[in-house]
């Protein structure tokens, strides 16, 4: 693919975006040259004092006006359709994807891998494998931008946003915060390390400090006393809804609406439980907003997802 200097195409999407850029550049250059060329040509030919033929200048020409309007539509809309289909494809991650949690906070990125491995301002990930960044902010709106992958996604407080890509080149690529987030906004940068599959596994294993994210979630689950209401097997009926096999299932709420139990649902149920009461249960769950921070929430959600796995009834992370 044509290579723009200074920026390598290190993801599956990069080549397409660069091609779109070149097509747009071509169309725009054509029109800029057309307009400026005509301006110069007419300027010179019909300059004051020149003896050009100026008889009956046309006042208007409906055919020409309709013509160039339709021409613009015919040129413009296919570009829109192409760009929109690429966007549509880039927004929806495939099924078998490696999930890495990213926590944006004022002026640094904290990355948490599923096996509990934590990094600051660095993301290690395998090459030629789809990776989904599961992101949330602890304070203001940030935006994770990896220029070499041509991907960017705002990181919102209070809601998970995702960003997926598939790296095609190994190496180190800069990542930057794109949404203004305060004093050190320009310091909130980091590096993405793309490694061969084997190296990645080795890196992940040898430096794994302590327990996996799910295990940390389990410890939190007992420490915070969730087990008192939420039983883990079908036999006992606790005062809280059964969490086994919950992840990915659609849940019927008290007010009759149904919602899929994704990460956002679980997070909101912990932080603001009154907002979504499951049908048939009392609104007695207190908020844990001030006892857990975003990392604990990631651990708890990872633990609840693992519950679903044992049950086997889960459609993808």
């Amino acid at each position: 693919m044509i290579h723009l200097p200074g920026l390598n195409q290190a993801s599956t999407a990069a080549g397409q975006v660069d091609l779109l850029f070149l097509v747009l550049l071509g169309i725009s250059s054509f029109f800029v040259l057309l307009v400026s060329g005509l301006l110069i040509y007419f300027g010179v030919k019909y300059r004051h004092g020149s003896s050009a033929d100026r008889s009956n200048p046309p006042a208007t020409n409906n055919f020409l006006e309709i013509g160039w309007t339709v021409a613009l539509l015919v040129i413009g809309l296919p570009v829109f359709v192409w760009a929109a289909s690429m966007y549509f494809h880039d927004e929806v991650p495939p099924n078998n994807v490696l999930v890495i949690n990213v926590l944006g906070k004022q002026w640094m990125w904290e990355v948490v891998h599923d096996n509990g491995r934590r990094e600051i301002n660095e993301i290690h990930l395998p090459v030629n494998y789809p990776v989904k960044l599961h992101m949330i902010s602890q304070d203001v709106i940030h935006s994770l931008w990896i220029p070499d992958f041509r991907v960017k996604q705002d990181v919102l407080p209070g809601r998970y946003t995702t960003l997926w890509f598939e790296a095609t080149e190994t190496g180190e690529f800069p990542l930057r915060c794109a949404e203004y987030c305060g004093t050190q906004h320009s310091g909130m940068t980091g590096t993405v390390f793309v490694m061969e599959q084997a190296d990645y596994q080795a890196w992940l294993e040898n430096a794994a400090q302590g327990t996996s994210l799910a295990a940390q979630g389990e410890q939190l689950f007992s420490r915070l006393g969730c087990a008192a209401c939420h039983k883990l097997n079908e036999q006992e009926d606790g005062r809280g809804p059964l969490l086994l096999g919950l992840y990915g299932r659609t849940v019927l709420l008290e007010d009759g609406t149904t919602i899929t139990a994704d990460a956002d649902y679980i997070r909101r149920s912990i932080v603001d439980p009154q907002a979504q009461i499951v049908a048939g249960y009392e609104p007695i769950m207190p908020t844990f907003a001030n006892q857990v921070d975003e990392q604990d929430l990631l651990a708890l959600i990872s633990y609840i997802q693992s519950l679903a796995n044992e049950d086997g009834a889960n459609q993808g992370k």
Partner: peptide, 9 residues
């Protein structure tokens, strides 16, 4: 164009 703006926003 959507996918280009993702890169340059």
């Amino acid at each position: 164009s959507l996918s280009f703006d993702v890169h340059v926003h």
